[in-house]
């Protein structure tokens, strides 16, 4: 879901970059010193996840994992995803330096939304309910990212419904897979270290 260099117009790039800059600043301010290793690890997880291709479906897609990252990091997801995307751009030419802002926002903003929607729920007493929410979280984060990419591409003259449909169909297997992965992660953490899920954004 990385948007390449030279596709988006300047206003979209500037808007994306400034939104990301603000959110990253806020994320760094919110980030507790204690959280640091967790942020670093999840940033590397994001960095590696994009290299894992899901060979199902009509197009070339890969894991994103922004749902679980948002769930575990809250606002710190912004700096984490920014750093990971920067290195993907430098080392693998996914996206690029000018689209870094837009790409960070399209992936990190859904992570924050998921954090606010599900962070309470997945800590609840009822195991089944919590895991169901975890699945929806993983599914929804990719869905929202797809919608945001489609929105960014609208300004290049592509039709929103057409692009959105294409992206969503291509990413349907990823959505389901990420839902399942999020269930495993949350299930594991609930059992082993429930305090890792405790975050006040």
């Amino acid at each position: 879901m990385h948007i390449s260099e030279g596709i988006l117009s300047a206003p979209v790039l500037v808007a994306g970059a400034s939104l990301t800059a603000t959110a990253v600043g806020y994320g760094l301010k919110k980030m507790a010193y204690k959280q640091m290793p967790k942020v670093a690890i999840l940033s590397s997880v994001f960095f590696v996840a994009s290299l894992i291709h899901v060979p199902i479906g009509p197009s070339s897609v890969h894991l994103i994992l922004n749902g679980i990252i948002g769930l575990l990091l809250g606002w710190a997801a912004f700096p984490a995803i920014l750093v990971a995307l920067a290195f993907q751009a430098i080392l693998f030419q996914f996206g690029g330096p000018t689209t870094l802002g837009v790409n960070t926002f399209t992936m990190a903003f859904p992570a924050i939304i998921c954090f606010y929607l599900f962070n309470r729920g997945i800590k609840g007493k009822n195991n089944f309910f919590a895991l169901t929410l975890a699945f929806i979280c993983g599914f929804l984060s990719v869905l929202l990212s797809g919608i945001m990419v489609a929105t960014a591409l609208v300004f290049t003259g592509e039709l929103f419904m057409q692009v959105a449909k294409l992206i969503l169909i291509a990413h349907l297997p990823v959505m389901i897979l990420e839902g399942v992965l999020t269930v495993f992660c949350v299930g594991f953490l609930r059992k082993v270290r429930p305090e890792i899920l405790d975050l006040d954004a």
Partner: peptide, 12 residues
Amino acid sequence: IIGGIGYIFGIF
């Protein structure tokens, strides 16, 4: 890949 992970840890 491993280099990239190293860089990320370094930055944090």
